[in-house]
């Protein structure tokens, strides 16, 4: 007899596929390329012509981070100033926010300050932010230095990526990074999820939290929605 130990982990093939769902939001001035970032990430497509997003759009994407299957709903918002009173109202539903500027537009970089203050005012506490300098392929038109981006990100305690939806630079990386940050921020809930093993209960409970509305009654369970 060589010892009778119980079997270890379940076979990988039929493991549970989805653990978490949450929302990420893209904000920044009109024309910095928010919609392009989204299209590149979800559909791996790029269209150079600029069509203003007038409204709020979203797409779904499933990625695996740290062994957890994450379904993210990515919201793309209108950047134009006149819509901002309305788009701000969408912030409260996000767990993670991309603040996007265009490296070829000093103005869009300057406006990040205003976007950050809007996030502070409207987004839920503990929302994760990441700074994106998009259009990194347009080196010849560059108005904002890489260090400037880094500097600003540092000031606000954010991670920073220069991306290009056109050349697919750092797209997956930045989305994955923000997802990681959100996961980390909600580590406690996730631990609970994991220790309850791969049963359906755990899933459903998280699902419930996902669907729960904001409000004081819900304040004990922070901002999964």
């Amino acid at each position: 007899m060589q010892g009778a130990t119980p079997p270890a982990a379940p076979a990988p093939a039929m493991a549970k596929q989805y653990d978490v769902l949450f929302r990420l939001l893209l904000i920044g001035d009109s024309g910095v390329g928010k919609t392009c970032l989204l299209c590149r990430f979800t559909d791996n497509e790029f269209h150079s012509s600029h069509i203003s997003t007038i409204g709020v759009d979203f797409k779904m994407k499933t990625i695996e981070v740290d062994g957890i299957k994450v379904r993210i709903q990515i919201w793309d918002t209108a950047g134009q100033e006149r819509y901002q009173t309305i788009t701000k109202q969408y912030y409260r539903r996000a767990q993670g926010i991309f603040l996007v500027y265009d490296i070829s537009s000093e103005r869009s970089y300057q406006h990040i300050m205003k976007w950050v203050s809007d996030v502070d005012e409207y987004a839920p506490e503990g929302v994760q932010k990441i700074l994106i300098g998009n259009k990194a392929d347009e080196e010849q038109k560059r108005q904002v230095g890489r260090e400037q981006g880094q500097q600003l990100a540092k000031e606000y305690g954010m991670d920073f990526y220069e991306t290009s939806a056109c050349t697919n630079l750092n797209i997956k990386e930045s989305f994955t990074r923000l997802t990681e940050l959100v996961l980390q921020a909600h580590r406690k809930e996730l631990e609970g999820l994991r220790t309850r093993a791969s049963n359906e209960l755990a899933l459903a409970e998280l699902e419930e939290e996902e669907g729960k509305p904001e409000g004081p009654a819900n304040s004990s369970k922070t901002c999964w929605c």
């Binding site: 007899m1 060589q2 010892g3 009778a4 130990t5 119980p6 079997p7 270890a8 982990a9 379940p10 076979a11 039929m14």
Partner: peptide, 29 residues
Amino acid sequence: KYAKVKLIRLVGIMLLLYVKQEHAAYVSE
């Protein structure tokens, strides 16, 4: 080296299942 996976018995009818320890991780459900 073997790992016992399961023992089941009904009065006098008993069945034992062992696998080599290295296969234990691939036994489920």
